[in-house]
Amino acid sequence: MAEILVLVDHADGAVRKPALELLTLARRIGEPSAVVLGAGEAAASIAATAGEYGAATVYVADGAEFTEQLVVPKVDALTQLAQEKGAAAVLVTSSGEGKEIAARVALRLGSGLITDAVELEAGENGPVATQSVFAASYQVRSTVTHGVPVITVKPNSAAPEASSAAGTVENVTVSFTGNAAKVVARTPRVSTGRPELTESAIVVSGGRGVGAAEGFAVVEKLADSLGAAVGASRAAVDAGWYPHSNQVGQTGKQVSPQLYVAAGISGAIQHRAGMQTSKTIVAVNKDPEAPIFDLVDYGVVGDLFEVLPQLTDEIGAR
């Protein structure tokens, strides 16, 4: 059966959820093999998880290069594997780094590239990817017509489903090509204890209407009562009220949760680009004319400092 290479994104020694989604999607178009790079001692447990989600083979490569140089070592490894194993497709998570890796792999393989797929199916002419473009106002279906399809898939595009496979570890020695930027320091992002923005089933976001950094307390309290991740509009981020890593939108994270709550956010096109594919959308805004109300399933015209705490209390009382 066609071998599909899946680059497994990991952090803090654990598989990240989007990698499990990729393994799940890969099974629709062939037989997944996982590629685990630079995981050090965690490789064995990561490989085991990949096996539980359907990876027959797990290729493991290690080396300081993967952490000390930007992007290129992973490109070297993935290209080498795709060539040696005659892979039928290569899947990578759509993150800033993931897309860069995929692009360079595609170029080296002489292959077409599709980024930011939200859906993947087997088709007569290879995998068919669906993308959501122009701030999610259009759906585009495309295929790769040249070479080995290299496709990046957005987080939350599929629900991870376990499917036990051998997960046989094969250690790989990579020939590194160089010409990479040096990573001179790395500061891991401190976890807030809340779910990852792109992975969370529920996201509660605050915008300029939150008014100040302290105002985010009401947003966080609601998020915590729902077990949700916290997001922010660019206006709130630019004002310094919330970290950029929590920005939702075109130049922030693109989220696609089951439930998105927008509080004090007007709904500019660049914000919508990051949340419009959410399943259910709810907004609280003082201005009945705010464009965000055009997208909501349920909207409350009102002051978020009244509505959010009352909602939080209601949830607590249930």
Binding site: S132, V296, Y298, G299, V300, E306, V307, P309, L311
Partner: peptide
């Protein structure tokens, strides 16, 4: 390519003291 069906506008209520409860 297909235009995504525009999201149909849902229910909009105005808060008159129980907006949070209605949302809940």
């Amino acid at each position: 390519v297909a235009a995504r069906p525009a999201r149909t506008k849902g229910t909009i209520v105005t808060d008159e003291g129980d907006g949070g409860k209605q949302l809940a």
